[in-house]
Amino acid sequence: MPMNAADIEKMIKDAIPDATVTIRDLAGDGDHYAAEIVSESFRGKSRVQQHQLVNKALQGKLGGELHALALQTSAPAE
């Protein structure tokens, strides 16, 4: 069963409380999403490290219930 955007956002915000999260359904099928996540906790981390934080927040659901999630992560602009 696919995940809905609100559940994805909640999981990310639970793990990264200061995050601003924008989720888009790319295919209209509830199975392919893009997420833009901005968090101070990303500052000084590589893109890989940022994505690892998000993947950890999704608790292993990526590739299962959540088929595809394109990530764009960044720290807030100064």
Rank of each mutant, 00 (worst) to 15 (best):
M3S: 10
N4G: 13
N4D: 15
A5N: 12
A5T: 09
A5G: 14
A5S: 15
A5W: 05
A6W: 10
A6E: 15
D7L: 10
D7E: 15
I8D: 03
K10R: 14
K10Q: 14
K10T: 11
M11Y: 01
I12S: 00
K13D: 03
K13E: 02
K13N: 03
D14A: 13
I16K: 06
P17G: 10
D18H: 07
D18N: 12
A19R: 02
T20L: 14
T20Q: 13
V21P: 11
V21F: 01
V21A: 08
I23R: 02
R24C: 10
R24I: 13
D25M: 05
D25P: 02
L26D: 09
L26Y: 02
A27M: 05
A27P: 00
A27G: 10
G28E: 06
G28Q: 01
D29C: 15
D29F: 09
G30Y: 05
G30M: 09
D31Q: 13
H32L: 01
Y33G: 03
A34K: 08
A34D: 07
A34G: 06
A35I: 00
A35W: 04
A35M: 04
I37A: 06
V38Y: 11
S39K: 06
S39E: 07
S39F: 09
S39G: 07
E40P: 14
E40S: 15
E40V: 15
E40R: 15
E40H: 14
S41R: 12
S41A: 14
F42M: 09
R43D: 00
G44S: 03
K45W: 03
K45H: 08
K45M: 12
S46L: 08
R47Q: 14
R47T: 13
R47H: 12
V48H: 07
V48P: 04
Q50W: 09
H51R: 11
H51I: 01
H51D: 14
Q52C: 13
Q52V: 14
Q52F: 13
L53V: 04
L53S: 10
L53H: 04
L53A: 11
V54H: 00
V54W: 00
V54P: 10
N55C: 05
N55I: 07
N55V: 04
K56A: 12
A57P: 01
L58V: 00
L58N: 04
L58Q: 01
Q59T: 05
Q59P: 00
Q59W: 03
Q59R: 14
G60H: 08
K61D: 05
G63D: 07
G63Q: 05
E65W: 02
E65F: 01
E65P: 02
L66W: 07
H67D: 08
A68Y: 05
A70H: 11
A70C: 08
A70T: 14
L71N: 12
L71M: 15
Q72N: 10
Q72G: 05
Q72P: 00
Q72T: 13
Q72R: 14
T73G: 08
S74Q: 12
S74E: 09
A75I: 09
P76I: 11
A77Q: 13
